[in-house]
Design a protein around this nucleic acid. Structure first.
Lengths: 255, 255
DNA sequence: CAGTGGTCTAGACCACTGC
DNA sequence: CAGTGGTCTAGACCACTGT
């Protein structure tokens, strides 16, 4: 299984080894779940030092192509099943029968929720800007972590002006049928539209732990702002999603 | 500048050094553009071997917090100016005066375009599925790279059924005023809506090179499908964006 | 127990920057 | 020229897996 490298290519050895392994993965020579040759084997295959082959494999891990388990080996990553977040997932018709938005997202399968924190706090600069209130205004914060099939799927933090949330089930762990948006509409604020700003970046160490992210997996960050029929902001939701588990699907108008 | 580590924490030394440096960045002790202490200084600061401090800095590079220049040093990354891609950027009103969608995206500043390839080819399985045609059907492919202020911003590949593109300016490098969508409407296919599927992942080596991406920067991939008033697909555009240069902005209906 | 990947060290040569 | 980060080597100990 000796593999030859090209000394005249000018590329560092670890890049050439990574390219060789990547090509084996992309060509199907190494399939999903297959074990890579061990470090000692790669050392022999390519005639390189251990740190060098480790650097090559580290590159593939950073690209999200490979993961490693201590004591077992390194393996070709399979893409996990992907959830589609549809642009109309907050449409009223999905709430009428008491189904909250997240179970719509999950295609009807019931997700479990780990409520991290529910309570009042002072709005940060960022939250105040989103809500259109002054910094330090009292707001309700609801931080949750959602699981599907035992896997952590998303971290969500909602902010609602305290004047709107006070005395309602929004301040409880269980917001009741239809979720937080049903409670907001009961308060006389009919929802008209949402804006959603999407960014992507590498996770912080905290996020990587909370979402059980493999190395090399970016996260989506969604900032969703809910407006009522007066075009006032009634809620903001800051969501972190594992990018390898979601496709975000939107519809754009042509006129 | 000696920094003490906690041997009882159980964390590997390189993680502790990375945590220490990350904390210095987040606290503002190290500002945007500031130079990190050199490897030799970090070796002295933390009493670790060179590979160990390099592993710590590599972690911060993978997180996108730091970049390095050979011969100069390692620096705290500043976020580049961000472009906002609005959900209505393909609305007809933005085309009426001969302005193509991309200059709308860029806030009116004129981007430059590097046309990589324009010509007919057979639809791949993926392209055929998007266009709703049989695999191998003749389609026009237009691959471009867009620059703003000299920086590569996005890679875009459009596919149009050949029956629609043949004999029009779409098959030329310059598609003329209003761009490709104006040409499609001239062919009698009024555009009604677009769908856009958003994913994020780490770039391939090719993409990282073409977009001049710093390590640790994920990319967005947009698959945008254009439908005419008969709900037939008239074009598909596969776009790769540097995720640190864009905010994608959408509007979601509440009913 | 042998084999795996994870961490760490000490030392070397290189290409590049800036003085 | 000295100092920087980039690459590479040889060797060590560790924690964990599977038999």
């Amino acid at each position: 299984m000796v593999r030859r490298l090209d000394p005249s290519s000018g590329l560092p050895v670890y890049r050439q080894i990574a390219d060789s392994l990547r090509q084996q993965i992309e060509s199907g020579e190494l399939g999903v779940g297959d074990q890579l040759r061990s470090e000692n084997q790669l050392i022999a295959d390519y005639g390189a030092a251990r740190q060098t082959v480790r650097q090559a494999v580290a590159l593939l891990k950073a690209e999200g192509l490979v993961y490693a388990e201590r004591g077992r080996g390194a393996f070709v990553r399979g893409r996990p099943p992907v959830e589609r977040l549809a642009f109309d997932r907050f449409a009223r018709r999905h709430r009428k029968d008491g189904e909250a938005a997240l179970s719509v997202e999950m295609g009807g399968r019931l997700p479990t929720v780990d409520v991290v924190h529910v309570g009042p706090e002072k709005a940060s600069v960022e939250v105040a800007r989103w809500l259109g209130v002054r910094t330090g205004t009292k707001v309700l914060r609801r931080s949750r972590r959602y699981f599907a099939a035992g896997e952590p799927m998303e971290l969500a933090t909602s902010y609602v002006p305290w004047t709107l949330a006070s005395g309602t089930a929004m301040t409880q762990e269980d917001t009741g049928p239809g979720g937080i948006y049903a409670r907001i509409e009961e308060q006389g604020h009919e929802l008209r539209r949402f804006t959603e700003d999407v960014t992507a970046r590498m996770p912080t160490p905290d996020e990587a732990r909370a979402l059980a992210l493999p190395t090399g997996t970016p996260v989506f960050r969604l900032i969703r702002i809910a407006y009522d029929t007066d075009d006032d902001v009634v809620e903001v939701c800051d969501t972190i999603l594992a990018s390898d588990r979601y496709v975000l699907s939107y519809e754009l108008p042509a006129d």
